[in-house]
Design a protein around this nucleic acid. Structure first.
Lengths: 340, 340
DNA sequence: TTGTAGGCGTTATCAT
DNA sequence: ATGATAACGCCTACAA
């Protein structure tokens, strides 16, 4: 395929030096209004498009941001990316999007592909398998701006955007207790994840505060195989001292719970109340409708992007500060936790 | 941020000429095994990473594919991208992902950003607003390989991947009729879309074949504002000659139907049977579970990617052939269309 | 088999 | 205000 016209060609059409044309197009101050106009109109006429790679090579920046997420088929991550894009596209940045599929090895490969300057920065949420973080440290040490959201990596001193995981889990658990639950199970994806730890803390503290003893048999570590999880939860619900409430730290585990309950001939909320962190679009079309803790996903994406754009576009910005910024989630009570 | 070491630096560490090092790393035949090994081991030791922009500039290809979709918060598109990525990543390609948010103007902007070679090819599904296609024609005329999936653009002579829209809609409609529906409504996003036209044809032909007269009042063109659609469908369901069956050509319209039904105190499937094209992960957790026509989304993505990779990696490939390739959808009957 | 040199398309520096 | 030149990092004729 033939790319468009080059700066040099454009210059020769105008009988000008390439540098002059460049200045005109880049709105330099050392250029006459007259030639600037001439150049711009000719550039438009010939539909001149600067070659991004020549520019990247010259300026050592790519105008590209890499986004790494654990999975695409997940509204939360899709919303975050929408949020990021809404800001970055305004500033002429492009988004390379990678999914790790919850696989650390894939994550490492992706990260290593980004060591060569292809992206000016990285926004990511780590995979549930990620415990060794040397690959991320590596990137950080090279000076590439990294920014975490949701599933953050505490060991890397950079900016992280999360929701109020602890408080939300605390409130969610308290809500279950207020609805009469005595034995509340906590479903998690992986013990390594930052969100697991914080949400679990909130869960434990709520139990404690309400004088309920935590039962370690009710802390369930699931896999990312839905079928396995359904079996696991089904077994849990068949045990003699089965839980009467469930806090799912991620959406898919709530859905697996619904499936497991169906197979067990139990009833939500009569036999089991369920609350979940979830950004699904139709919690109210489930049967019963699902009580959710919804993260401000799009806002998280936007905030990530804003801070990044500032860092990337303003001259001599300091490194991204090592801080955790929390945007509050929203608890919406629906039928799955109601007494009837 | 400091990028890694350059080829030139690597060469000087080895007391070799840059060209020699380049040859060693690119596995040229005109190089001795000995130096090749030396170079490679040193390159690994120093973690040499070629600068992608220098390479792109030199070779006039970016190793990047742009994917343009109408929305991210949609399992179908997420699955397609997963499918694309599964193939392209194996070949060292990166994915720039753009969402038009169903907005032609955004689509035009995105497309114009891709005129400068930033991507080696485009895989896209057009926005529901797209009727003027000059921006796409433009791209095509520049010789940039474009490939459409799902919502294709017939006017552009290139390869398109779709599902068997006509047949699926035909079967879906017939299924509704077999379940006793006499007045079946067809919900669409936009009359312009290729998928709308094909699915509508299938719907009409099924009616005809079963001897049911089509009623133009039952062809409902919705917007992409969920709330509006719910109102629209609610009104439809309140009319005296309301439909007793609905074929939703896209998932979100089935969901709006569920919402509308809830507000109307009607019952699915007793008062209204619903079938929908949908790739949602939990059709069986809806109340009632939703009868779906599910597209082979991931396979579509993979096929797109395969044909593209072939085109991009093999020397002097012909243009992408002007053909429509159809992968069959799957009809899964659930409660929303059952007689009880 | 290895080295030298030129150019991909920009932009910044220096000279005019 | 404009032009000439060099450089970003890589690859590939061409020369040795």
């Amino acid at each position: 395929m033939k790319n468009g016209i080059s700066l040099k060609e454009l210059a020769s059409k105008l009988n000008l030096a390439p540098s002059t044309v460049s200045r005109a197009l880049n709105d330099s101050y050392e250029i006459s209004e007259a030639t600037k106009k001439k150049v711009i109109s000719m550039a438009e006429h010939l539909n001149y498009q600067p070659n991004p790679f020549a520019r990247s090579l010259r300026e050592n920046k790519s105008k590209t941001i890499a986004v790494i997420i654990p999975e695409r088929i997940n509204n939360f991550f899709a919303q975050v990316i929408d949020g990021i894009e809404s800001i970055t596209s305004e500033h002429g940045y492009h988004l390379l999007v990678y999914s790790t599929h919850e696989d650390v090895e894939k994550e490492k490969k992706i990260v290593s592909l980004l060591q060569n300057g292809r992206a000016d920065a990285i926004v990511m949420s780590v995979s549930s398998q990620t415990s060794d973080i040397s690959h991320l440290k590596n990137l950080y040490d090279r000076g590439l701006p990294i920014l975490f959201f949701d599933r953050v990596c505490g060991e890397i001193p950079t900016t992280k955007f999360i929701t109020n995981d602890y408080e939300s889990a605390f409130e969610g658990t308290r809500h279950l207790i207020q609805q009469g639950c005595k034995r509340i199970a906590f479903l998690m994806l992986s013990k390594e994840l930052s969100i697991t730890r914080e949400r679990y803390r909130g869960y434990l503290d709520a139990l404690k505060k309400e004088g309920i003893e935590a039962d370690s048999n009710l802390s369930i570590c699931c896999s990312h195989q839905d079928e396995e999880n359904i079996q696991l939860i089904k077994a849990l619900l068949q045990s003699s001292d089965r839980p009467d409430g469930i806090l799912a730290s991620v959406e898919k585990l709530a859905l697996s719970t619904y499936h497991a309950v169906k197979k067990n001939n139990l009833s939500i909320p009569d036999d089991l109340k369920v609350i979940s962190f979830s950004n699904m679009s139709i919690p109210n079309l489930l049967n019963p409708s699902l009580t959710t803790i919804t993260q401000p996903a799009e806002a998280i994406g936007q905030e990530c992007a804003k801070i990044l754009i500032k860092k990337l576009t303003k001259p001599r910005q300091p490194d991204l500060p090592n801080e955790v910024i929390s945007l509050p989630s929203q608890l919406t009570i629906r039928e799955s936790t109601l007494v009837r």
